Amino acid sequence: MDPFVVLVLCLSCLLLLSIWRQSSGRGKLPPGPTPLPVIGNILQIDIKDVSKSLTNLSKIYGPVFTLYFGLERMVVLHGYEVVKEALIDLGEEFSGRGHFPLAERANRGFGIVFSNGKRWKEIRRFSLMTLRNFGMGKRSIEDRVQEEARCLVEELRKTKASPCDPTFILGCAPCNVICSIIFQKRFDYKDQQFLNLMEKLNENIRIVSTPWIQICNNFPTIIDYFPGTHNKLLKNLAFMESDILEKVKEHQESMDINNPRDFIDCFLIKMEKEKQNQQSEFTIENLVITAADLLGAGTETTSTTLRYALLLLLKHPEVTAKVQEEIERVIGRNRSPCMQDRGHMPYTDAVVHEVQRYIDLIPTSLPHAVTCDVKFRNYLIPKGTTILTSLTSVLHDNKEFPNPEMFDPRHFLDEGGNFKKSNYFMPFSAGKRICVGEGLARMELFLFLTFILQNFNLKSLIDPKDLDTTPVVNGFASVPPFYQLCFIPV
């Protein structure tokens, strides 16, 4: 058959498939802009700032609406009420993970971030239990974070109060905490193996944040037939998995079943207990991918939040002064901060919360999916439909947070200066898919920041009023603009 005829037939089939998918069930789905064949609503979305586009569309179609990214149908949730109703009140029905062709290629359905069903539930339950087990290797997770915080302070001392970009050092600290939990080992910041790991993690975040990856996920045929950065992403992930597998083999040879040292040991012990169960989800494949998931999810998000926190503290020296006064009063100079201190430091706690609220790190979270046909607000959402959640619409709700575009710790303080919780605080998402490392991340943010401010004054290279804190939105995360500062020993 003539190649031209084959091409026309293929394009015609794709067009018909697109029209059929977009028209099927439209009477039951939430409203939304009319999609174009094949490309859907992509032309109506700013790929570099999806969150802003969703906010604009919500003003037209309401808090629940339908979009098509290519052939992929998505239902968008915008605003606290619908997000709570879906992710919390109907948590089980909305607990699936959205379709990610690239991740599915890399992870093969294993791990904790992109798995679904029984596998996801069992691996998540085990990971939560293990991360909360403060007795691994007779050292609590808090001990590990405190140790890394001391190392971080010593690295900052080496800058000798000269101007520096904190990106690298602030990236090393949370990565080392995860390494300590998974591998029972922290690395020197100049260790070549550690630097290679950091390089792969950072490069992957840069790649994932590009519009090209959005295109690959919406048109998965590209993955096999086109060159691009997605190939580098898959190569980096394969490198990390190979490295983790080597460490798993080392653990198998040296493990003491009665004295687990780290996450890998705990997983291997669980595998041993379930070795007679042919349906067990505790396999080497799941261990390797879960460890890679924890490394990827637990490094860049925390380091970016820390980097943004220091920029905001530079911009608002009056806030920094209040935090340091609270540190001096509650902790002093002669001991290290600990998590028990947080309950006695409402202002510092409010500042950490406000940093996370203000920066809105992951504006749309990772997409969910419905696990069955769901009736939601008089609409029928078919099983498997991807759910896109606007966390921006919750964290920047102007009824809950007056002047949401302003950095103001009073958003989390009552009139008496006591810490005030808010149900709208969802930087880790909400419901059954809430970030498994939430507790660890909150511990790291509090301890790293208090250790830094206990030991250093922060000095800006320019007038604080002239510092730009506008986030650089890159399609996946909101990151701070480049800046330098000086760490002046107190």
Rank of each mutant, 00 (worst) to 15 (best):
P3S: 10
F4K: 06
V6E: 00
V8K: 09
C10Y: 05
C13G: 14
L14P: 01
R21G: 11
Q22L: 11
R26Y: 12
G27I: 15
K28P: 09
P30I: 03
L43M: 05
L43W: 13
I47P: 15
V50S: 05
V50Y: 14
Y61T: 01
Y61A: 01
G62K: 00
T66N: 01
T66H: 03
E72R: 14
M74P: 00
V75C: 06
G79P: 00
Y80D: 03
V82E: 07
V83P: 02
K84A: 10
D89I: 09
E92R: 06
G96W: 09
G96S: 08
A106G: 09
V113G: 07
F114T: 11
S115K: 03
R119K: 12
S127I: 14
R132A: 15
R132F: 11
G137E: 12
K138V: 10
I141E: 06
D143Q: 10
R150V: 11
V153I: 09
V153A: 05
E155Y: 13
T159L: 14
S162F: 10
P166H: 02
F168M: 14
N176H: 02
I181S: 05
F183D: 03
F183E: 04
D188A: 11
F194Y: 08
L201N: 07
V208D: 05
T210I: 06
I213C: 11
D224L: 05
D224Q: 14
G228M: 05
G228P: 04
L234Q: 06
L237V: 11
E241C: 15
H251W: 00
H251N: 05
S254F: 08
P260A: 06
F263I: 05
F267P: 01
E274S: 09
Q278I: 13
E281F: 10
A291D: 00
T299Y: 13
T301P: 14
T304R: 15
T305M: 04
L306I: 10
R307E: 04
Y308V: 04
L313V: 04
L313I: 05
V319K: 05
K322S: 10
V323L: 10
Q324S: 10
E325D: 14
V330R: 08
G332V: 04
R342H: 11
P346A: 07
V351T: 11
D360L: 02
L366M: 13
V370P: 05
K375E: 08
F376G: 00
F376S: 00
N378S: 12
T385R: 00
T392V: 03
F401S: 00
P402D: 12
P402W: 05
G416T: 14
G417M: 11
G417R: 07
F419T: 05
F419I: 09
S422D: 02
Y424T: 08
F428I: 04
G431T: 02
K432D: 14
G437A: 07
G437S: 03
E438V: 06
L445N: 07
T450Y: 00
P464M: 11
P464R: 13
L467K: 05
L467A: 05
T469Q: 10
N474L: 10
A477L: 09
V479Q: 15
P480L: 06
P481D: 06
F482E: 15
Y483L: 05
